[in-house]
Design a protein around this nucleic acid. Sequence first.
DNA 1: GGAGGAATAGAGCGATCGCTCTAATCGGAG
DNA 2: CTCCGATTAGAGCGATCGCTCTATTCCTCC
Lengths: 206, 206
Amino acid sequence: MPNTTRDRLIGATADLFRRQGYTGTGVKQIVEAAGAPFGSMYHFFPEGKEALGAETITWSGAMYGQLIDLFYVAGSDPVRATRNFFEAAADTVRDTDYADACPIATVALEVASTSEPLRRATAEVFQSWLAAIDTRLVQAGLTKTRARRLSVSLFALLEGAFILARATRDHTHVRTAGRAAADLVQAALDQRSAQRSALRAGRGRK
Amino acid sequence: MPNTTRDRLIGATADLFRRQGYTGTGVKQIVEAAGAPFGSMYHFFPEGKEALGAETITWSGAMYGQLIDLFYVAGSDPVRATRNFFEAAADTVRDTDYADACPIATVALEVASTSEPLRRATAEVFQSWLAAIDTRLVQAGLTKTRARRLSVSLFALLEGAFILARATRDHTHVRTAGRAAADLVQAALDQRSAQRSALRAGRGRK
DNA sequence: GGAGGAATAGAGCGATCGCTCTAATCGGAG
DNA sequence: CTCCGATTAGAGCGATCGCTCTATTCCTCC
């Protein structure tokens, strides 16, 4: 049963959070954007704005997480996937007039020191993204620890580039970060290969 | 003439912006934190909160920018400098209970789509940071375009890692990003050396 | 020691904040 | 058709928002 009032509230909130953050978005503005009656807001979210915020963070995180699976297809080249992901992100940032980058980064920074429930929600989303990338990188032959190291760096490159791109209104920064990200993935894969050769050589010598 | 009311207003605002962002910080909260009379706020900043915000962004940016010069000393090893910078940042984040990371990233994301004056202020700060790193990297032998590519990536790794660290309350993410950053710097320097050798070889052959 | 601008001090404005409350309306089950 | 919970609808609460305004005090220069 899609497109319910509840869903529209979350969707509108997600939209507004991206552009204005958490504190910058008012409840009345949300219900207006959602085309929902004001009473419905507190009917579906009796615990108020914070609860709606948490739900929105989780929902937005799941949406954006699907993009990871879309680009990092099992068995495909993770270097190419990384390049494509960053290129697509740069395009989106440019095409949306520097409004749509990460759906929850703004809120994450805002609430990190002000609301434990919301902070936790953002943390869980980020962890789930890292886990998703980890899976693909391990499938590509990396150890778990190397995969985690890499996924953290890819995340940071993307999020950091988003900040720079939105502030300077220059999407090429995301492409630049994407190039570095692809380099890091390539280096990790090379290291894996080198290790394997060394292992083979070692076994052969024994 | 330091420690004037005006200075204390900016200092208090910088402090609050880090933790609560722009919209999350009230004018009355600022004057209280600064121990300043309310009237003084509008005496020194007749154009209101936005003007104070812009000034604070510029000031905070200059403060943080000094750290770049502190770590990237002319003539020293940029790989080591990068490692040290990220390690120090991770320590700070940990020691301040995940409050003090980038002084203006939160505000930058908040205002990117809502206030042109403030957005511009954050953009100028970021550009100045990139320029500062560029200078050092060019001194280390990189071309301008390669230096810029690298500085953007270093910026992104740091800022992105800050987001992740604050959200998950795990400072090791900043260290992980620092390792990747150092790797990128090393790779850029290696590439420079390789290019030089190739150039020498080419000239010798001619 | 006045004069006069800089700075301090805070009451209070209209608007908006998140939220509570009551009442009306809707729609499916018996 | 009746009933009854789910949902819609919105008035209005106290608090806070950014800000204006009028006094008053402070300090400097003549």
